[in-house]
Design a protein around this nucleic acid. Sequence first.
DNA 1: CTTGCACTGAGGTGCGCACCTCAGTTAAGG
DNA 2: CCTTAACTGAGGTGCGCACCTCAGTGCAAG
Lengths: 340, 340
Amino acid sequence: MRPTAKDLAKAAGVSLATVDRVLNDRPNASKKSVSKVNEAIERIGFVRNIAAVNLARNRIYKFLFVLPSSGDQYLRELLNHVGESNKNLASDMIDVDAVQISVDDPHDVANFLTTLNSEDVDGVAIMAPESPQVRDAMVRLHDRGIKVVQFLSGQERMENTDFVGVDNIAAGATAGRIIGRFHPDGQGQVLIISETMQAQDAIERRIGFDRIMNQKFPRLKVLPSLETYASAERAADVIERSFRYNSNIVAVYVLSSEAKVPVSAVSKCAAIKDLTIVVHERTPFTEQSIRDETIDAIIAQNPGHTVRSAIRILRARTDHREPLASQEKIRIEVLFKENL
Amino acid sequence: MRPTAKDLAKAAGVSLATVDRVLNDRPNASKKSVSKVNEAIERIGFVRNIAAVNLARNRIYKFLFVLPSSGDQYLRELLNHVGESNKNLASDMIDVDAVQISVDDPHDVANFLTTLNSEDVDGVAIMAPESPQVRDAMVRLHDRGIKVVQFLSGQERMENTDFVGVDNIAAGATAGRIIGRFHPDGQGQVLIISETMQAQDAIERRIGFDRIMNQKFPRLKVLPSLETYASAERAADVIERSFRYNSNIVAVYVLSSEAKVPVSAVSKCAAIKDLTIVVHERTPFTEQSIRDETIDAIIAQNPGHTVRSAIRILRARTDHREPLASQEKIRIEVLFKENL
DNA sequence: CTTGCACTGAGGTGCGCACCTCAGTTAAGG
DNA sequence: CCTTAACTGAGGTGCGCACCTCAGTGCAAG
């Protein structure tokens, strides 16, 4: 049998009421009592039964994912995993929901966050681009007692806020290592494509990529980033032009998380199987493409892991516990055809 | 507020006692009552509060990891994660422990498993090589009501038993893809080193490796597997001999999970930085080696993930729930210097 | 000495559920 | 008709804990 609060009280030589005061930081506990209880906790190895705590508190965790309204397959994956987590965690009294808002206008995002109330929600995971307004709104959320997680998005790290996602500089460097090692003879040009270079994640990936290419594979020439603005026509246009002007493209690196548009455009300009193509995020499209060997590698952050990690962190913060850093580190996954 | 069992009873038009009979498969519930309750569960979206269930049942989960007594760094990682999980899950009333037994003699393993009692343990995760005795003992564990997980080890898949670990054929193929793509000009010999080729996991990795090398990279010649039997002297001996007879070794693939001995031996025979070296499992040694670029890639199964996955599966089985396959798939991780 | 305040312990209630008992109802079989 | 077995509902207890009330106790300031 595990020791209960009653055993703790006996071991500490105090009453249950005092144990309760200490455990829950209630007033009217003397320093002596506090230390007696803490000493006894260590001595008898008392561990609070979380199930009983939550039952007694009659607590229901409510967490919200704030996601962009624009997006393609990867976003859909995220939404699916949020829904699935909601189902799976219902028996643990955890409600998870997702809203999609237009993240183009930072004001809208900030306004939405402002409407959130600590009565309705315990924690929020936010995927939105960098902007002072959003940062302010996040700080105010925290002040209202709502836990905040920066979710996959490229905000600068904030105090009182956890980040879930990968180190994008490292992710870009990983892509660089793969492309570089796949071309040991050097020589050739590398095409870089992104939806936009405004986004922090794209910038960081590019930085990491450039760094390793310069250091390790200087004979491969990295071209300036093309921006598609998520438009198929524009993608076709700029990519076609780039292939026309650059006659020795041997590899393509797609920075953004939606790879379908750029890869499709590339396939119309070149013998795509002769190119080394590295993209981000596992989606139905990229999975199919790696199976048929159109693309060569996927750098991914597992959407299921990220969603669950965000939830675990929010739960820990809500309980005033420290999340387990070792468990919550999101890995930069490298996927080839063989280890899908 | 979530609906409680009381709400369920009202919605189903039966008493709490009958709801209890249905939910817990107790006798003396008519088919009509059962269907009324089940219909109401769907209708009002009733979800059992697991915390309350476990509290009322006063249940403490007890899980045991049965690990080999021989092993080096990777085994130590596993033990650490078991210990860490035990700490972290104490507040969820989950006790996790590990025992190490000599797995050389299948009889010893089987005998040990036979001593396990369903009073003392709810589930066991077993890492032990293939053998009929062990299989039998595992079946008998299951018959005694103890849940069984085959942990990382190369047993054939069994009924009533979950497997935690990676597809080793795919892992070997992944190693093959990396070595192959790192040598696009072809030509050269690939050295394969393993502690033993008796173990199922080594065999499977070799199969996967050979398959892709034959199909995709036939110009690289894969040498017969060297066996070190975990002995540094023997490793030095056979590896030195191999380098003497084979003058064009360009890559080394270490099949077994402890890479220290073989890599150290290789480093004495050749300019190690000119070789492409792929090993299995992240350990302090392999991590250091990839940082200083002695080795080029690590194929890993995350020990923390595997331990936690085994525990989640055992917990689900103990609760007569189905584990979430999507969450429990252990990924074949590919680690380069950049995405450690 | 009294007053006031910080502290303490005893005890109660309820969270959602499991598990038990027992009186009572219904329906089938003879 | 009665017997029997299958079923049902009402109610109680307890799991470990949070949260509350209230009657104290001790100690320091006035």
